[in-house]
Design a protein around this nucleic acid. Sequence first.
DNA 1: CCGTATCCGTGCCGATACTG
DNA 2: CAGTATCGGCACGGATACGG
Lengths: 111, 111
Amino acid sequence: MDFNSKYGKCPIYYTISKIQGKWKWVILYKLYKSKMIRYNRLWNDLKPIAHRTLSKQLKELEADGLVHREQYNEVPPRVEYSLTEDGKTLAPILELMSDWGAKHIDSDTEN
Amino acid sequence: MDFNSKYGKCPIYYTISKIQGKWKWVILYKLYKSKMIRYNRLWNDLKPIAHRTLSKQLKELEADGLVHREQYNEVPPRVEYSLTEDGKTLAPILELMSDWGAKHIDSDTEN
DNA sequence: CCGTATCCGTGCCGATACTG
DNA sequence: CAGTATCGGCACGGATACGG
């Protein structure tokens, strides 16, 4: 494996590097399930996430072309987030990750 | 979504929390593809990873029951790592992540 | 060969307060 | 409502050296 170039030519390393951050996968999953969701709704669903964190990770996802941001100049302001076409290609991974987690939460004795 | 309990009852959050760490997905992928691999081989393939990092993440994966460690008391010592049955259930995700990365590395203009 | 010990930088992330 | 600004802690991970 060659890590000299930026993403090391290791496909899976590229993927996890691109979607790094404690909440990014969860954010993507939420957007995937909601199709479209307002900032505050997202924030409430993901609480206890901090504003700064949510905002920053959304911005990064947007810059990476995975998330689309639509702003309506109303009063009060409204902003809706959704997956881009590129972002939607992650859907199978999101589903599998969620399924895997669901199966293993149960088998954990605690909780 | 409820994050009061340890894993917040959010399956995908559980998954990424369990497999957190800059290299864990790559390590798992390597083990998946190799079936079984010696420590030094792994270290070479993942270079520039630090010993401390590789060792620690392997230990955590072992503690989480995803990776099996087999030690042979020879001279020189030999240790082989492989996926447990539980670890193998991640295979579809590993495949998809790798595929996704492969597709998107190409479409990145740089590199 | 296969790690652990030690030390240390930095980058992520959270709390809180403030703005258009 | 939808964020940004500022500040700070701390956990993660890297370099290096040493041990079984």
